[in-house]
Design a protein around this nucleic acid. Structure first.
Lengths: 150, 150
DNA sequence: TGGATATCGTTGACGCATCAACAAAACGCT
DNA sequence: AGCGTTTTGTTGATGCGTCAACGATATCCA
């Protein structure tokens, strides 16, 4: 760890590109989502809710899905609640728990935003990839993710 | 744009993995950098400065390199200045401009942090990639980046 | 059963990012 | 030269993310 091998030119280029892409692509997609009155965070919260049976998840579960800590989720749910996108309810089987339920307005919001978001995702990402490249990226990302701590 | 093709299962998997990786890998690396008393933002600012001739860049240039807007850079430079990592100086050829110069303490900080950061980058990323995969990722990322608006 | 421990969600404080407004200086056009 | 426009950097207000502390409940284990 004291004197690691430095990155060679190819690696350095890839790394810079990766960093740049991670800054720019999300911000382009965020901007697209915002046209429909949602932030990227709103969208992240609403997706798992929309995929769940009653549009409802326990806060803990929801946080686990999107990798948010409890505090961040609680704060953001409060804001979304004020805007009428979700509501909190008591958790039947665990009195500590809180359920987060999507409102009709919430469902309408994400259903309105999703097509544009998917289209943007295609336009800026998938349309530019060959099938083989999708395979390589999937393999690499899965491997890197699996190797991360925790 | 009204009814785009939805993502198929392969694409959806890759997309979720990509989102997850973009959340987790930076946070793992940030945590590593923070061991050396720097934030990821500090590091981002110090890298271009350390690569520039006198450890000095015009604010505009610096912001362009790391894709930060002026306001963010100005605020962050103010904080770094208080901590003695950089100093502001007047710009000779443009009286509007501001130069940002790395102090000795700033150089010491990034030189102290860089080896660990590079090691972490290897451990969590490059060590897991084959040469061919580096090539594919480079090609893909360059292409995606070139296709982004602006 | 009871007391220690762990988990869950909320809250308030703080730091950082973003946005709009601004002043100063440079540029462009006639 | 002169006036409008553009660029540059700073500032203050606002909103979000993170952290530590907390009360409430559930779980564990003797």
């Amino acid at each position: 760890m004291a004197r690691p091998r430095w990155l060679d030119e190819r690696e350095a280029h890839l790394w810079r590109t990766w960093l740049r892409l991670n800054q720019e692509l999300p911000s382009v997609l965020e901007e697209q989502i915002s046209h429909d009155g949602l932030s990227g965070s709103d969208y992240a919260v609403l997706v798992p809710l929309s995929e769940s049976p009653d549009g409802m998840l326990r806060a803990r579960e929801l946080g686990r899905e999107i990798l948010w800590d409890r505090s961040r989720l609680s704060h953001h749910v409060s804001r979304m609640e004020k805007r009428g996108l979700v509501v909190r309810e008591e958790c039947a089987e665990d009195a500590r728990g809180a359920m987060v339920r999507m409102t009709d307005a919430g469902r309408a919001a994400i259903e309105g935003a999703a097509p544009g978001h998917v289209a943007a995702t295609r336009r800026h990402f998938f349309d530019l990839l060959s099938d083989d490249e999708v395979d390589v990226l999937t393999a690499v990302f899965d491997r890197v993710l699996a190797n991360l701590p925790r």
